[in-house]
């Protein structure tokens, strides 16, 4: 399957600071990809690069076979809902739909109308008077009604209350089924995305720490605990993510493609949250400038 998004050594610098660097990724089509990392990790930068709102400082990115925002045809293929879901406060809901219809040849007016109706939004209401949840839904409606093949969402639920958050994700997931969308959405909280995504990218300190299918990530990462030992003494196919050593005991989180055969380890599975935290910890332990190669696990089906 051809990837929907591919980046090689992608980097973006603001002034002297790298917001994102050495980002080499492949995202297969038809996935809901969660982009997780603390604030300022480079999530917005990555999404803006993918949407073509920013030009890369180094490296390259290909989305759906083209350079992002390289002409109208390319713009039509990608939907982007920016952080804080901006809308024109003085325009009404109906105005926004009219705007979308006027600016997008592929606009699905039926979809837009139905969604607005089902959400119970008043078309005559000014967007500035909408609640955060309603505004997010309006922005999502605009993103969906242009009928993109890839939808990028930057922290779409960060500012929503739990109910609005759930409603937003429900609408999004429904659209994924209905319109066969690929989605990349970011959040600084894994819990927002855990159920929704089947592919995960962990981004900290402007670098990608790990990326891959959620299932495969869970299947290949293990927590080993047992008598204290030196971390160097592990089989070659086991890569230590984090290691904690007490007086007599060692607890190690490893990535291993094969089974763990050493009987002195007691092996337990990780939750997705444990896994993400392990990679974030690891980043905190290391020097941030060390070119830690991102570990990319290709999704196989």
């Amino acid at each position: 399957m051809t990837p929907i998004l591919q980046s090689q050594e992608l980097g973006k610098k603001y002034g002297r600071r790298w917001a994102l660097r050495d980002c080499t990724l492949e995202i297969p089509a038809g996935r809901v990809v969660g982009l997780v990392g603390p604030n300022g990790a480079g999530k917005s930068t990555f999404l803006k690069l993918a949407a073509g709102q920013l030009a890369p400082t180094s490296g390259g990115i290909t989305v759906l076979g083209g350079r992002p925002a390289d002409g109208p045809a390319q713009l039509a293929k990608i939907g982007f809902v920016a952080q804080d879901t901006p809308v024109y406060p003085r325009l009404t809901v109906a105005d926004h739909l009219r705007l979308g219809a006027g600016l997008n040849p592929g606009w699905d007016a039926g979809l837009a109308r139905q969604r607005i109706e089902r959400l119970g939004l008043d078309p005559a209401q000014r967007a500035g008077g909408l609640s955060g949840g309603q505004r997010a839904q309006l922005a999502l409606t605009m993103g969906l009604a242009k009928r993109p093949r890839l939808l990028l969402l930057d922290e779409p639920v960060a500012s929503l209350d739990p109910l609005a958050r759930r409603e937003f994700l429900q609408g999004l997931m429904e659209a994924v089924v209905e319109y066969e969308l690929s989605v990349v959405l970011s959040s600084h909280l894994l819990s927002d995305l855990e159920r929704a995504c089947d592919h995960l990218i962990v981004l900290t300190g402007s670098r990608v720490r790990v990326a891959g299918e959620v299932e495969r990530l869970l299947a290949t990462h293990h927590r080993l605990s047992g008598p204290r030992r030196e971390p160097g003494r592990l089989p070659a196919d086991q890569h230590v993510i984090t290691a904690r050593h007490a007086d007599r005991q060692s607890t190690v989180i490893v990535r291993a493609d094969g089974p763990i055969l050493d009987p002195s380890w007691s092996v337990s599975h990780l939750t997705l949250e444990d896994l993400v935290l392990a990679y974030m910890d690891r980043q905190a332990d290391q020097h941030t400038d060390e070119p830690a190669r991102a570990i990319t696990l290709e999704g196989r089906r």
Binding site: A51, Q53, A69, G71, P72, L75, A76, I78, G79, F80, A82, Q83, D84, P86, V87, Y88, P89, L99, G100, L103, N104, P105, G106, A139, M142, G143, K146
Partner: peptide
């Protein structure tokens, strides 16, 4: 200031 450039730049229209 309102961030709406990000909304309009993602419509099918070049900057």
């Amino acid at each position: 200031e309102a961030g709406t450039h990000l909304l309009v730049w993602n419509q099918t229209i070049t900057r």
